[in-house]
Design a protein around this nucleic acid. Sequence first.
DNA 1: ACTACAGCTGCCAGTTCGCG
DNA 2: CGCGAACTGGCAGCTGTAGT
Length: 359
Amino acid sequence: RLLARPKAHVIQVSDKTLAPSTLKDEEHKKQRDDIVRIIKREVERARKRDVLVVAPKSVLHKLYEDNGETFNDKSSQPQMLHGATVRWFGPRLLGINTYSDFATIILVGRLQLPVVALEDQLRALFGDSDMPLSFTDGGRLKALKTSLLRADDTRVDVKVQSHPDPRGAALLRQSREAQSEQAIARLRLLGANTPKRVLVLSNVPLPGLPVNEWLKFDAVVQDKSDVQVSKKYQSLERAIDGANGPVLRGIRLSASGLNKDAKDVFPSVGSAKEFRKKLPLKVILEWVESIAADRGLPATSMLLSKSRRGGHETHAVVFTTAKGARHLSQHLWPEFGKHIVSEEFGLLKNEETAVLEPI
DNA sequence: ACTACAGCTGCCAGTTCGCG
DNA sequence: CGCGAACTGGCAGCTGTAGT
């Protein structure tokens, strides 16, 4: 276990193992392209400093093949892929200091022993123990609950593939987690004088490595937050961008309002209701604010109500400053009698990056 | 093959709000 | 104060997709 904090920004994928079996076939080309996209971006981000990519051998072969090259897994010479130095998991990676000055490491997947090999080891090491061994049925590992440590010391519940026999589970961790940690240790994070970046492209929690960003694979690929790649956030973006028509000048936030203002994205009141499910108004407002800010638009939130009998006020946002808000609102939604300006969103609030938390 | 989850729809019960 | 429109939230059932 690491007792000191590694000086690194650690990003880990939460929703995929990225095991070789999910990368090697033709149907996984897109997945491999996404990995290449991450590699290229990190090479760029590192400026002239070096980036190390560690992956299983079979995956490296495939990535080279995609690129019309061949990977030589016998050579001890450094080999490059899209500007990054590549290595494979395994004994050849241990103990060396060659990579201590690298700025970034990207781990692709993880090395997990085949269950047969694991159970051979289990028999070899513990076959004569007093406690009888237990084995998987049909070579299938079970999902077991553990937790992952975040950089802020909170924990997230996650599942890992595990062996039913505790000794088998220990052997599995020993080879799988340790391989990844060993690879990361090549960058000498503890002694680093400049902070480094670590990208773990696999959802196996590494006990010694507090994670700063625990993100969906798609979010890592697009270099965004989970929220920004969520279906709902993107629906709202499409709605505001006008889908097939012109960009909206304002949008109502109630289910029926969304349906009327953005028919392409919310074709029925029900679909708009679905969108609003588990999404507090406050969050929707934040999203609209951040979408507007992204596009350099001013935004003002409004409260609308009908002048006739009954009815509930409805929230809306117009994309203009507080000054013009009332006019625009009356123009867009003449059927409402009352238009109350409630809040103007700053175009950008000092901090350019608004942090969107998962719901 | 199995599980988990997202999205859609219909249905229902309950709340909020302002006008008359 | 009562009414009714619009909003809120929950549940069940169905479908399709993704991950393992």
